[in-house]
Amino acid sequence: METTRKWGVAVNELLDVRDLTVAFQSKDKSKSLIPALDSVTFTIKRGETLGLVGESGCGKTLSSLAVMGLLPESARVQSGQLVFDGEDLLALKAAEHNKVRGVRIGMIFQDPMTSLSPYYTIGNQLMEGMRYHLAMTKRQAKERGIELLRRVGIPEPERVFTDYPAQLSGGMRQRVMIAIAISCEPDLLIADEPTTALDVTTQAQILELLGDLQREKGMSLVLISHDLGVIAEMCQRVVVMYAGQVIEQAESKALFASPTHPYTRALLAATPRLSSKQERFYSIPGSVPAPTEWGTGCRFRSRCEQATDTCGEMPPLSRMDGQRYVRCWYAPDLQSTLPKEVRA
């Protein structure tokens, strides 16, 4: 029988996001709360790679910022738990959270040019976390910083250590962000679009580097990406988000072999394929609704070809066979059409 830790978290689960609900306070006189995340629930196992996918504005980055404790000042966590290695991060005081953020949980932010300060050298920004969290001397932090730059594939690390971000290419800055994120050897690394705006060759190098680091350190990896090909190659499990909700999650192989939710199917259908003979690529009609337009029913119904009157009510996130969860009233019917070998 599998033993459990505090909060009932299984030993092999590093992070358990439970019913996380976040809203933003409006800037008008009403000071009303605008929803942003709605009962987001998923787990991350030790040593696994979990993919978060969905269009822009679906809540992927906001979920990761909540885990990091870096939500904007106007954000309000209304309910839920973020149980990391047996402790609820939302229950920690600021000083206690600082001992987790950057040490046990690292994050590679989406845009390294805006995430790195233009006023400080690469070395200063790399040493800061190690000196604060690991109580290293300046000399120790410098030696480790240069070694980290060398480890992430940066040539002439001693020179780059004294450079400023503007002196580096986009790929080099991204490697610096990775070095900073892993400098304290975190148990969990969150990579938010780590290959955005990089050329194909650099993308492949960055992804290979992340895979190598994960295997060496045994850390868990959350990969946020719009590139479904990257997710299919890198991740063991996938969480699909839409309009602030988790609408499907399953093992990667099963999800890509035969997606269940209409939105997941549409995402995969919209993926360009070199072998396609179609003159025009498929695109999902409409756009992700703004939080003020969510309403009470299924949030994908205005774009779904299979929507009926039943979809006017919010469907629950229901467990199918094995490890597949789907938020759709017609999930059982859709699931029954899947071959047994890909039901998960």
Rank of each mutant, 00 (worst) to 15 (best):
V40E: 13
V100H: 01
A36Y: 05
E279V: 11
T4D: 03
L65D: 04
D212Y: 06
E48T: 15
G218K: 00
T296H: 11
S183V: 03
P72D: 05
S258F: 08
A66N: 06
E96Y: 01
M219V: 09
R173M: 12
L334M: 15
S336I: 07
R273T: 12
S276L: 02
R299I: 07
G229D: 14
V77K: 01
L338W: 05
L209N: 06
R319L: 15
L33T: 03
A331K: 07
A331R: 08
S115M: 13
P285A: 03
K6D: 00
G129I: 05
V239H: 06
L65C: 03
I146M: 03
E208K: 13
T4K: 15
G59E: 12
Q249W: 10
P262A: 11
I180M: 10
S39E: 13
T296V: 10
G286E: 06
E143I: 11
Y132L: 08
R18A: 03
L62F: 14
E96P: 00
W294I: 14
K60Q: 11
S258N: 11
T3K: 14
P72A: 05
P157E: 06
G312P: 06
S32N: 14
G145F: 01
M68I: 07
F84S: 02
R5L: 14
Q203G: 07
Q167R: 14
V160W: 05
E313H: 14
R144D: 10
S56D: 10
P186V: 01
E185K: 09
D333M: 11
L228C: 07
T114C: 06
P118E: 08
L338T: 08
D88I: 01
D227E: 14
T121H: 00
V239P: 09
H97R: 12
E156C: 02
I247A: 06
A181E: 02
L50R: 02
A166F: 15
R151H: 10
K253Q: 15
E87Q: 15
C58S: 15
S26L: 07
Q174Y: 12
I206C: 06
K60P: 07
M320F: 08
G54C: 05
V103D: 11
A197T: 09
A197E: 05
T264S: 15
L89W: 02
I108G: 07
T308W: 05
L33H: 04
L52H: 08
G229Y: 09
L210V: 12
G145M: 02
Q125R: 12
I206P: 08
V17D: 04
H97W: 05
L65P: 03
A232W: 00
Y242S: 06
R237E: 11
E313G: 04
S26T: 13
R327H: 10
M113C: 04
R301N: 05
I44V: 15
L228H: 07
T260Y: 00
L116Y: 10
L268T: 09
G54F: 02
T137E: 05
A66L: 10
V239A: 13
L274T: 12
A243Q: 03
P155M: 05
P112H: 03
H97E: 00
S276Q: 01
